[in-house]
Simulated scan of single mutants.
Amino acid sequence: MSKPKYEFGQFFWSDLTVPDATSLKDFYAEVAGWQIQEVAMNDNGEKYNDFAMMINNETPVSGVCNQRGVNKNIPPQWIMYINVESVSESLNKALKLGGKLLLESKKADGSYNFVIIQDPAGAVFGLGTVK
C-alpha cells in the first residue's frame, strides 16, 4: 500500500486572497518561478479569473484569489489549509475552543469541502480533507 500524499495534520494547500489577484499574480510568478493558470470564476453572473500557481506547468502549488465571490469575507492574506480526517469534527472542536467560522464550502450532499476559521488570537487558516 502506498503512503498517502498528505498525512492528517499536514498543511496541503495555500491560497492568497487579495482585492486584485490579477495585478499580483505576476509578482509571485516571478519571485517563486511559478507558472500561471487561469481559473474561471463566477460571482452571481459576473465572470472573473482566480489563478492556480503551477510548477513545471503541471503541478499546482497555490492559488492567488480575488477577494470576491466566496472569498469576499476573507482578509487579504495567505491561508494555509490543514488536512484533517473530518472537517466537521475539527470545525466543531475549533468552535468549542474559541475559534470563529469565517467561510464554509459544502458539497451537494451537505458535507464540507473546506472551512476557513479564525483562531482565538486572530490568525486565519483552513481545514480540508485530502486522502
Rank of each mutant, 00 (worst) to 15 (best):
D15P: 00
M1Y: 02
V61F: 04
P60G: 05
F12V: 14
V130E: 07
E104Y: 04
Q10C: 08
A32D: 04
N83W: 00
N56E: 15
E58G: 15
E38G: 08
P76V: 07
Y112Q: 04
M80C: 15
Q118C: 03
T129I: 05
L95T: 14
Y48I: 10
I117S: 01
M1L: 06
I55P: 00
S62P: 07
Q10V: 12
D26L: 09
D109L: 02
K131N: 12
K25N: 03
L102E: 06
P120Y: 07
V87R: 02
S62K: 09
I36K: 08
P120Q: 04
A52S: 15
D109C: 06
P75I: 10
M80A: 15
K107G: 03
I74D: 00
N56V: 13
P120E: 05
G98V: 13
K106E: 05
L91R: 14
A94Q: 12
N83A: 05
N57R: 13
E30I: 11
K25H: 08
V31T: 14
A40M: 10
I74V: 13
S105D: 11
D109A: 05
I117G: 00
N56W: 06
E85F: 05
Q10H: 08
S2C: 09
F11V: 15
E104P: 04
Q77I: 11
A21H: 09
F114A: 03
Q10L: 04
V61C: 13
A121L: 11
N42G: 01
K96Q: 15
G9W: 06
Q67Y: 07
I55F: 08
V64P: 00
Q35D: 14
N83R: 05
M41D: 10
N66W: 11
S111Q: 12
F8S: 06
T17F: 03
S2L: 10
C65M: 15
P120G: 01
Y112P: 00
K100M: 12
Y6G: 00
A29W: 04
F114G: 01
V18S: 12
S62R: 09
S14A: 12
T17K: 02
A52T: 14
K96C: 06
A108Q: 15
K3G: 02
G99N: 02
W13C: 07
E46N: 15
D15C: 01
V130P: 00
V64K: 01
L97D: 15
L103C: 10
L24P: 06
I82E: 11
Q37V: 06
E89I: 03
M80W: 12
A123L: 07
